[in-house]
């Protein structure tokens, strides 16, 4: 692995990125859902609903939600898999996982397991999940290829990987608007609402550093998945990549 990697637009030592990302999420955990609603005008709920509906998850399935944070995907998966299924909500960040646990209890959702883990080293047996999801988390992972290989390893043959992530729009108008919005409005709103301008500056920068749709599709295929297709949502601001292990 290279000795340096990116943290937003900055180059940092590879071993430092994890702690820097941890700092961001420690800082934003308590206001995470509120900020998502404000910054995306509520669209993140639609993107996540589409992700769940696209998962083809059914009763009895075993699902791992990585970087699951406050647990909105896990809640929906829990309803889909029923009593005979199994959902694990995981996150590398203890503060985010704590928010997730609180959120699930408040909503009366039980039967979800919580695991603090690093996506690059998944502590699960080979071929054990029907579905693995990661929503708005992959861009924060230091070694994405390793994480994708791990996701591939733990999925059953026929299992489905879902990656929901900010991506690149090919609309010039949308690009200009989005650049202005993410580099000017988002950090300001972060400062006003969460008292944290830097974390939302990082958010905007990390989106630009994240691989585009085609590159990520190639990465998923290179990890071993037999099929990968992505759907651009809201003009490509967000993309859902779906990989199938064969």
């Amino acid at each position: 692995m290279n000795n340096t990697t990116h943290f937003g637009f900055k180059d940092v030592a590879t071993e430092d990125k994890q702690n820097l990302v941890k700092g961001v999420f420690d800082s934003v955990a308590s206001k995470y859902d509120l900020m998502n609603d404000v910054l995306s005008f509520g669209a993140h709920r639609l993107w996540k609903r589409y992700t769940i509906a696209s998962s083809n998850v059914k009763i009895g399935d075993k699902v791992l939600d990585i970087a699951g944070g406050t647990g909105d995907l896990a809640i929906s998966f829990r309803k889909k898999v029923g009593e005979s299924g199994h959902v694990i909500l995981s996150d590398i960040n203890a503060a985010m996982l704590g928010e997730g646990r609180k959120n699930l209890i408040n909503k009366g959702v039980f039967g979800v397991d919580f695991v603090q883990l690093n996506a690059q080293y998944l502590p699960f047996a080979d071929n054990s999940f029907d579905c693995v999801s990661i929503a708005f988390g992959l861009r924060n992972v230091t070694d994405k290829d390793q994480a994708l290989s791990e996701m591939y390893r733990i999925l059953k043959p026929g299992g489905c990987l879902l990656i929901l992530e900010f991506s690149k729009t090919d609309s010039e108008f949308l690009k200009k608007f989005y650049d202005f919005y993410s580099f000017n409005v988002m950090p300001t709103l972060g400062e006003i609402i969460a008292d944290d301008k830097e974390s939302y500056q990082y958010l905007a920068e990390s989106i630009r550093k994240h691989p585009d749709q085609e590159t990520l599709k190639d990465m998923v295929l290179n990890a071993g998945f037999g099929f990968c297709e992505y759907h651009n949502l809201s003009g490509g601001i967000v993309a859902l990549h779906k990989g199938i292990k064969v």
């Binding site: 993107w47 609903r49 589409y50 509906a53 090919d170 749709q213 599709k217 297709e229 967000v238």
Partner: peptide, 19 residues
């Protein structure tokens, strides 16, 4: 689910042009 999909207008991958 149906309304969400309509609102976010998903398009399949081969329409995307690389930047």
């Amino acid at each position: 689910d149906g309304l969400s999909a309509l609102l976010i207008t998903p398009t399949v991958s081969k329409l995307y042009k690389k930047d």
